[in-house]
Computed example of a mutant assay.
Amino acid sequence: MTTSLPDASGATLIVDLAAIRENYRALRRRLGGTACGAVLKADAYGLGADRVAPVLAAEGCRHFFVAHLEEGIALRPHVPEAAEVFVLHGLMPGCEDIASAHRLTPVLNSLEQVEAWTALARRLGRALPAALQLDTGMSRMGLSPAELDRIADEPQRLASLGLRLVMSHLACAERQDHPANNTQRLRFDVARRRLPSAPASLANSSGIFLGPDFHYDMARPGASLYGLAPVSGAANPLRPVVRLQARIVQLRGIAAGDGVGYGLTWRATGPTRIATAAVGYADGFPRSTGMAHLGDVALPVAGTVSMDSITLDASALPEGALRPGAVVDLIGPHRSVDAVAADAGTIGYEILTRLGRRFRREYRDGQPSPSPALVLEGVPS
């Protein structure tokens, strides 16, 4: 006899795969004939690269980007055989054979990386695919102007490489009027002319919205796929992808003057109903955020967020509207990831990638309905 277990989870993170699909389509439409890759680093921004990659592959995506070698190895079984997986950080010394064995394409950021990858190509007796990243002003990664000079003066350094992509990264693309955007684009154009002909890529998520001059041959969206706003101060044209729901553990009534939470920094000004929800900063939820929702009703955080719990002022609800086990939204229709980030003094990228593995996860696909389908779980040539 099979016995079903009750749902013991304290919170559920819902990932809308259909929304990711629609966001990819929307970005591809904006790009016109430019290829649309996908950045799946940090486990697809914390949402599960093994679940996200097949959705994007089914939409025709064939160029995937991760940060680290280990991420590329983990991603390779979840994308088509012919897909290209780029490793943005390039390779640590001594890892070249491993990358080649897993058919990964390093993004070479320094002369040392170029030389190590070229040495392997010579040893194997065949050209190896590679991308080159140029530093056009962000001063983070990529070939410096001096390194570019050496490669331009000594083109034999690239003779053993199959150059799949020349790329750079925009520092201020979310601010459309920032002068650095055009400065980097012009530097990119000048630098590309000094290298062998290859497809070019400059636009990240926000760069796509700077217009066709920034699109080149391929764009590399990441955060926009997952519903984060691409343009600072503008309405978000993309669909939200995540919803975080926490369950109520306990309810209590307190009197005027009673304190709540560590440090007793919050005190009731009158009779107050406090609801404790089972999410905290150990789940990646920031300590400085301030709101949950039950339907349309806002429930302010009362006191500080604890490691495993949040206390909410539920006084605006009718008595009995909340019971232990009831669900409230911490991220959802009334409160986006970007709104939570703004309250926490950070960016949506950080909130999304910090959401922990303790949540019960639901992957939804298909059009929203009263009973959506669920799966439950803890460069162009």
Rank of each mutant, 00 (worst) to 15 (best):
V39L: 06
D308H: 04
A171P: 10
L195W: 00
S381R: 13
H89D: 15
S144L: 11
E350W: 00
D329K: 06
L31H: 14
G366W: 04
L40N: 03
L225Q: 02
E319Y: 13
A74C: 13
Y262W: 00
V107D: 05
E84A: 14
A342M: 15
F209G: 04
G90E: 09
D189F: 12
G94H: 00
R335T: 03
P271T: 13
N23P: 10
R358Y: 10
A173L: 07
V87Y: 00
V241Y: 05
R273F: 02
R361L: 03
A234R: 09
R364G: 08
P286Y: 02
R247I: 04
G222A: 08
G32W: 00
L294P: 07
G356E: 05
L355M: 00
L225W: 01
Q156Y: 14
G348K: 00
A203I: 09
G290V: 07
L210T: 02
L210A: 08
E59P: 06
D16E: 15
M167I: 12
P145V: 11
D217G: 03
L13K: 07
P333H: 10
E71V: 08
S201C: 12
G259V: 14
G162V: 12
R123Y: 08
G290C: 11
R239N: 10
G303T: 09
G332C: 09
S144T: 11
Q176F: 10
L132A: 09
D50R: 15
A277I: 10
G72T: 06
A53S: 10
R122A: 13
I310Y: 00
L56N: 04
A42V: 01
H68M: 13
Y24H: 12
V337P: 01
H169R: 00
V15W: 02
P196E: 09
D177S: 15
L238D: 01
A116F: 07
P380R: 11
A101W: 11
L17C: 04
L161Y: 08
Q176H: 14
R103D: 12
P80S: 09
A342F: 15
A26Q: 15
R267P: 04
G259C: 12
A344F: 02
E81V: 13
